[in-house]
Structure formats: structure tokens, C-alpha cells
Amino acid sequence: MKLIDVKDKIDAYFDKVSVQEIITQFEELGYEFEDLNDDYILHVSKVELYFQEKPLSVVEGYVDYQTNKTDIFISLTPLLIAPNADFGNVHENLISYGA
């Protein structure tokens, strides 16, 4: 099975299925979801991040200021990262860089 053989069928399904249908299917399996409040979410895209004044490539994701939960997908340049780098304050970096 290769993606090229099944991609159209997958796309067709997700083009027509509603968000609620997907949520319901997962809920029937025991999953629980919560709403994301837009007032507290900052969607970010292509933001420059710096670590110890060195550029860290591009990030995409969101920061939830209500819970401080940070889901950011970072394409890091490994050589720039200290082994024990702490990204706990990454959302503050985003603010300071005008995201």
C-alpha cells in the first residue's frame, strides 16, 4: 500500500466529513475533548525563534495563554541547541518577537 494509491480516497473522505462527525467517532471510543478559547490562543506561523541569541529556524503551532500549554512544532537546527535546552519559556520568546 502506497500513499499515492490511497491519497485521493482519504482526501475525498475528509473533504466531506464534518468536524462533529469526527469528534463523535472519537468520543464513541472514549476520548474526551475540550474547547479551545480563541481569546487565549495565539496562532503562529513562520516566526523567527532565537536561543541564546542564535536563530532557531521556523516554528508553526499555537500558544494557549489560558493554560500556558504550548504546542509548537519547531524545525530546529540541532547544532544550535544545548543538550539540556529548556523551552519552557518559548511562549515568552514568541511574544517578545512580535508573534
Binding site: I10, D11, F14, V17, V19, Q20, I22, I23, F26, Y31, E32, F33, E34, D35, L36, D38
Partner: peptide
């Protein structure tokens, strides 16, 4: 695809 759909509905796993 599943995750994008869920996120587009402004939901996340509790």
C-alpha cells in the same frame, strides 16, 4: 487529517 479536522473545530484532547 484527523488531527487537522479536530483542530479546525477548535477542540483538543482533554
Amino acid at each position: 487529517k484527523f488531527v487537522e479536522k479536530i483542530v479546525s473545530g477548535k477542540k483538543r484532547l482533554k
